[in-house]
Amino acid sequence: MDEDSKLIDAYLCGDEGAVESLIKKYQKEVYSLSYRVAGDMEEAKDITQKALISAVTELRNFKKKSSFKTWLYRITVNTALNHMRGNSLIKVELTETIQSSDQGPVSHLIIKERERHLKSLLASLPHRQRLSVILRLYKDLSVAETAAVMGCSEGAVKAHYHSAIKKLKKSFDGGYVNEN
């Protein structure tokens, strides 16, 4: 039995310190994932708190079929998507960022500007493509783990990931800007 399972069992038996350890272990990971999905620090803070509350509340329903980390990431992703769906301000903010970033040719921007541009392009991708990139690149998950978090097949994860990278590559070469 791994450390997470022991902490979960201890918490379910009434040891509140166990869940405290569990939260402390994963809170930065959850925040980082929330930020990658939401793209805003304040929103990421809200999502982190909501996701962790959901996880603690639903802990007794965790069947241990996957790792706790995968399960927690799935809750975080769902919480983030629900949060963003219910918050139109984020959509406006993202749209504005994309519009402003599309104005100048990418080849003339400095490296930081390229990164910012890529970040906003990443935010503009369909959410499944975006999630596949976030989970694979930023969270270092395998294809199988990414599939478990996204609730789809490994083939679908590969397809989403490659579509996303292809679009980002086009934008990197200036093709994405020209097409739009």
Binding site: V19, E20, I23, K24, K28, K45, Q49, L52, I111, F172
Partner: peptide, 27 residues
């Protein structure tokens, strides 16, 4: 190049106060 640029994007630190209060609030 794309992957390297994406990975360079860092997550802003929300501060220690946020994380220290987070556990208590969540529980």
């Amino acid at each position: 190049n794309v992957i390297e640029s994406l990975v360079k994007n860092e997550v802003p630190d929300p501060g220690d106060i946020f994380f220290s209060n987070l556990t208590r609030n969540v529980i």
